[in-house]
Amino acid sequence: MSAAPPSPAPRAAVDGETSRRRGLGWLLLVPGMLWLAVFFLFPTIQLFFTSLYDPSGSYEQGYTMTWHVMNYVDAVTDTWNLFVRSFAYAGIATVVCLALSYPLAYAIAFKAGRWKNFLLVLVIAPFFTSFLLRTLAWRTILSDQGPVTSFLQTIAVLPDDGRLLATPVAVIAGLVYNFMPFMTLPLYASLDKVDHRLIEAAGDLYSSPIAGFRRVTFPLSLPGVVSGTLLTFIPACGDYINAELLGTPKQYMVGNRIQSAFLTEHNYPLAASLSLILMAVVVVMVVLYIRRAGTEDLV
């Protein structure tokens, strides 16, 4: 390289190069953007307008747009308890999932040796049958004459006339069961990436296995904890199958209300505003959560 100041020509060439590269980056985004536009953005906008239709309209006579903001107020006063229940169930289910999945993912990542892949297949095996069928099977498992109920009655955890089906326990158990792979897989992925030599180094620096886990392994697995809890909590908030099949109207969640508003009552403005409220609340909670997880006080 000569020491002469760069002439304008090569610089222009460099600029051309970088802008071409940037152009390629955008090009790669196009398919995803299109997909999102068609299947997410347009429906959401449509949903937004629907939520502001006049509630006096009906499925048969059609709706008129009156920017009826009161739909939202009505939706909240009507179903706020369902929201609370949804977030409570989803939250409990997420915590239980985490408690069950973490040791499982840890064992697969660190202790399974050559059984690793086999165990991972087992984790996703439930996906080979339909969500609906599996939840129906849980009806049988938790039924009043079923093995779990009678066992719990025998050991007196459950009173003789106690039941599991049609209780919050059943709904939460269903949520846990159905969403557990979404927790286990990201946890496994980040635990598997943890460098064993770091754990050895912690041991070398006076950390007992427990202290080493707390100071090194767990913090390094946090990305998996965050994505796992999100992947579990978000869909669990909107779920209605578990409440419908394993619960009663007393256990219904927002999803059930949205479903019946859309499909049974054809009250589209109510259903749309409920959906948007749910979406907004979940987004706010997720943003707060990620902000907090990004700092060290989660450790």
Partner: peptide
């Protein structure tokens, strides 16, 4: 205590 060949610093 060990100074590891790969450093093994906590990232």
């Amino acid at each position: 205590n060990t100074v590891f060949q790969s450093y093994a610093l906590f990232p």
